[in-house]
Amino acid sequence: MTDSQQPTDPALLLMISLAAGPKHGHAMLLDVERFAGVRLGPGTLYGALSRLEQGGQVEPLPNEGRRRPYRLTESGRLALEQRLGNLQRAVSTGIARVGA
């Protein structure tokens, strides 16, 4: 599968990663690479993470050395469920229309 065929919205990928539990930046990067096959750059990852934090969808936990773990907030979990539901509907419709 090429990069253009991967889900590449960094914010969505980070929320999916954090849905499994709190993680710091490097753990998120490895997790996203594992489940989505997408290698996020550090700048892209922190750009998305900062916007998610500003939007109240993730929140920081106390530092672990230089690393700071983040977790999904309740509103972040709801937003993720809604987005995944929308995606699922789109995917189901697409599959039905192509007759797969």
């Binding site: 710091h24 490097h26 550090p42 700048g43 993470l49 900062s50 230089r66 690393r67």
Partner: peptide, 13 residues
């Protein structure tokens, strides 16, 4: 706000 964390991530990658 994020500089130390990003620097740590760049050091890791």
């Amino acid at each position: 706000r994020y500089g130390d964390e990003l620097a740590d991530l760049i050091d890791s990658t």
